[in-house]
Design a protein around this nucleic acid. Structure first.
Length: 536
RNA sequence: CGGGGUGUAGCGCAGUCUGGUUAGCGCGCAUGGUUUGGGACCAUGAGGUCGGCGGUUCGAAUCCGCCCACCCCGACCA
């Protein structure tokens, strides 16, 4: 199907390529049906265009860059908003030119830190990317809904049941964003969802209702010795308080600046939320040296009395009182710490990771979590890019406005991988008929028998004439070898011809998912195949 | 980038610790023959910069150093 060339770089072999093209066809049909117009934009892009929007910073090292012979900086497009917006600003003048849905199926390059999972996460991949261009938010909303419908249709035609979840918009930017997920244990993503009200979100984005830890009057601040106690569990256990009555400090470097992140001890920090809150493009844990250099004591760090560091706190610190927190001295903590009274924070926001078991932010029911594969991602970009690049139009009154944009992506190779992941057994792949590289595995046995060959060739011709794609296994291999390869390839239908089936003027048929084969009379075989494939 | 691991025939591996004939095994491949309803068998044969460079040694797949590639776990995304 596929073969690795280098880390995150693959060749498609003939069968894999056929399946990929089937998926592309489905995607193309649904995009056209939704009113999309196909076009083609270049992989090779001038870096200046990215400097205009500033997004080369957000992509950072993920962007492959190069220079031409005149030392002009170019990049291999990780996505195409810049090129498209540039095209649009030169062609769209009036509200009469809108709305517009433009798409392509094109190669993208992203120098991923760690390619993995075969085709799941690669550095060169084909993506269908559609861009919606509207005069106003209502138009965007309408197209956004239209795309959600088209995407659902695509996945179901590919034999997958998809789940629409709220998502973080990441490096692409924009405000509203959703992902299409396929439930799979092997997936890299985690979805937090609620079965009662159907709230569903990527963990990166998911919220939950935070419990109230305590409701009591503030007591006076008090130092306690905590020899050797550093982690929340150690400190809480030693002092005999639940973790929810403590405050946890974690240090990050956000675009090089040290940040003091504070959260209630029973919760974990969601780094995506934190990065968004800080509006940072790069976020990582601070090194020990950086923490010490700022005069902080890891294990006993305290928001009280620190200065010169930005403090970002999760809003959970307001849901309680009289917390235990560090004293910024080794082996000492403070009791009865109360936010506001004892220290101030620079930013107070939701930076906590939602977890299964917590309460749904919509209905309060218990949240669940599932691993999943992200097979599509859509964004309401708004006017961010059109403003940066000056993609404007004149309305009825001759007033200039930025175009309202949306973008909608499906990774074709990843979708292929997800289909295989969800449609296989211990013997091999079980292709849905819609995306199978061929419909039928034609399997003549005893190839030295002239009658077998002539009947097989005749049947092959009739099936092709009826519009079916047939893989003719003309190898002189034993039945066992052919049957096993048929299962491995996983085409929906296997037709076997042998001296035995010819005795009754019939052909044997077996669906890939079926245990038993059955005999069909030769003269009605082609007609029956149609029924069988329609139902698979 | 941090942590762990692996590089020996097309694929999967043994040999490396303890240096010493011509570097093995299974699968696959080629030729001939016998076979054939769920991965047949016999015979013969082809196929190797032992990841690369350098060092130690009479002698290196094996010891030492540097580099590279790939895989897995974490920070990134269709």
């Amino acid at each position: 199907m596929i073969q690795q060339v280098a880390s995150g770089i693959y060749s498609y072999l003939p069968l894999g390529w056929r399946a990929l093209r089937k998926i592309e066809d489905i995607v193309r049909q649904e995009m056209n049906r939704a009113g999309g117009q196909e076009l083609m934009m270049p992989v090779l892009q001038p870096l200046e265009l990215w400097q205009e929007t500033g997004r080369h910073l957000a992509f950072g090292k993920s962007m492959f860059t190069l220079s031409d012979r005149r030392e002009r900086k170019l990049c291999l497009g990780p996505t195409h908003e810049e090129v498209l917006t540039d095209m649009v600003r030169r062609n769209v003048q009036s509200y009469r030119d809108l709305p517009l849905l433009l798409y392509q199926i094109q190669t993208k390059f992203r120098d991923e830190p760690r390619p993995r999972g075969g085709l799941m996460r690669v550095r060169e991949f084909t993506m269908k990317d559609l861009y919606s261009l509207d005069a106003d938010e209502e138009g965007l909303d309408q197209n956004y809904r239209k795309m959600i419908q088209a995407y659902s249709d695509i996945y179901s035609r590919c034999g997958l049941s998809s789940l629409l979840v709220e998502a973080d918009s990441g490096a692409i930017g924009g405000k509203d964003s959703h992902e299409f997920m396929v439930i799979a244990d092997s997936g890299e993503d985690v979805v937090i969802h609620c079965n009662r009200c159907h709230y569903a979100a990527n963990v990166e984005k998911a919220q939950s209702i935070k419990s109230k830890a305590a409701d009591e009057d503030p007591l006076p601040l008090e130092e306690v010795a905590t020899p050797g106690m550093k982690t929340i569990d150690e400190v809480a256990g030693f002092l005999g308080v639940p973790p929810s009555r403590t405050l946890k400090a974690v240090f990050y470097a956000a675009d090089g600046e040290l940040v003091f992140a504070l959260i209630r001890g029973d919760l974990e920090i969601n780094e995506v939320k934190l990065r968004n809150t800080l509006k940072a493009s790069e976020l990582r844990l601070a090194s020990e040296a950086e923490v010490q250099g700022a005069g902080l004591v890891a294990g006993s760090a305290s928001p009280i009395g620190v200065s010169g560091i930005k403090i970002v706190a999760d809003d959970s610190i307001t849901l309680g009182a009289n917390f235990v927190a560090g004293a910024n001295k080794p082996d000492v903590h403070l009791r009865n710490v109360n936010p506001r009274r004892d220290f101030a924070v620079d930013l107070l926001a939701d930076i906590a990771a939602a977890r299964a078991g917590e309460a749904c932010p919509r209905c309060g029911d218990q949240l669940l979590s599932t691993r999943s594969i992200e097979v599509g991602h859509i964004f309401k970009l708004g006017t961010f890019l059109s403003e940066k690049l000056g993609a404007l139009f004149l309305d009825q009154d001759g007033v200039s406005h930025p175009i309202v944009m949306g973008c909608y992506g499906i990774g074709i190779g990843r979708l292929l991988a997800a289909i295989v992941e969800l449609n296989h057994d211990e013997r091999g792949i079980m292709w849905p008929a819609t995306v199978a590289p061929y419909h039928i595995y034609l399997c003549p046995l005893y190839m030295d028998n002239p009658q077998v060959i002539s009947v097989a060739e005749k049947l092959y011709g009739e099936l092709e004439a009826a519009g079916w794609e047939v893989l003719f296994d003309d190898r002189r291999e034993s039945p066992g070898v052919k049957f096993n390869d048929a299962d491995l390839l996983g085409l929906p239908l296997r037709l076997t011809i042998s001296p035995r089936t010819l005795e009754s003027q019939s052909v044997e048929v077996k669906g890939r998912g079926q245990k038993e084969a059955r005999l069909l009379p030769l003269e009605t075989a082609v007609a029956t195949v149609k029924e069988l494939l329609a139902s698979s």
